[in-house]
Amino acid sequence: MANQIAANLQHGAGSEADAADQVANHMRRFWARSMKIQLSEYLREDGGELSPLAREAVARLDR
């Protein structure tokens, strides 16, 4: 799901940084805390299935 959101929001953003911010903000607003924790843990352990944009957005969740 993170990859799909990243792909959808990437098209309207001006830069990769803007797109990562938009994806992270979407996750903060609409995803359950447990989903965000699980995704952050997945990124720390491997994250191999995440697109580069989704990876950056998840990394920004922890900031």
Rank of each mutant, 00 (worst) to 15 (best):
V58A: 05
A54V: 08
A13L: 04
R28D: 11
A32R: 13
A7K: 12
A6C: 08
R55L: 07
L9G: 04
A19V: 05
E45W: 00
R44V: 06
I37S: 11
Q22S: 15
D46F: 09
W31L: 15
R63P: 00
A19T: 04
G14A: 14
L43I: 05
L9Y: 03
A59V: 05
E56G: 02
N8R: 15
L39I: 13
H26T: 14
A6R: 03
A7H: 08
A20K: 05
G12R: 08
A2D: 06
A2G: 15
E41Y: 01
E49S: 07
S40Q: 12
H26D: 02
D46P: 01
G48F: 03
M27L: 15
D46Y: 05
A24M: 03
I5G: 00
N25M: 10
S15F: 02
Q4N: 13
V58T: 05
M1G: 14
V23D: 04
L50N: 03
L9E: 09
M35E: 12
Q4G: 13
N25W: 00
H11F: 10
G12V: 01
A54W: 02
A13I: 07
H11S: 14
F30P: 05
I37D: 15
L50K: 01
N8W: 07
L9A: 05
G47H: 04
N8D: 12
S15A: 06
A24W: 00
K36C: 13
A2V: 07
A2P: 03
A13P: 07
D46Q: 08
Q10A: 15
A20P: 09
A59P: 04
A13Q: 07
M35K: 14
A7T: 09
R63A: 13
G12L: 09
M27K: 08
F30H: 13
S34P: 01
R44Y: 00
S40Y: 00
